[in-house]
Amino acid sequence: MAPIQLLINNSPHEVEVAPDTPLLWVLRDKLNMTGTKYGCGMGLCGACTVHLDGQAVRSCQTAVSSVGSKKITTIEGLSTDNSHPLQKAWIAEQVPQCGYCQPGQLMSAAALLAKTPRPSDQQIDSAMGGNLCRCGMYQRIRRAIHRAAGEGA
């Protein structure tokens, strides 16, 4: 088990894990960064979404050895003080209920807005369709994305 270097939220980290370990479990169990959630382990629910060089990926399907020098951004890297426009919009629209899926929802939304600053409803559907919310807060998620887009996320 050779050490693996990771750049997470602009901080360097070194971990010693089996190379096939999913990034999700490295974040959660090795680095205690528990904001990124386990939901299905198969890339079906989106709760584990993080960014690799700005692209939304499912960290449960990303072997840590495949990350290389790509910059990892997790929910903790969006901002810890809720200053990101999406976090503000999520609060303004009172989006979360149980809240468990929301880190993944926010990371998918952030990747969407980075590429498509003013997404249509259809673009929201296609970017957010991989993120399940069992509390069903979808229309609030949609409103919050539009709100953040309007405020120039």
């Binding site: 960064m33 904001g35 903790e76 969006l78 976090q87 999520w90 009172q94 979360p96 929301q102």
Partner: peptide
């Protein structure tokens, strides 16, 4: 409870 649910700290 919402603020902690948008930054991963919940």
């Amino acid at each position: 409870d919402i603020p902690s649910k948008v930054n991963g700290s919940a």
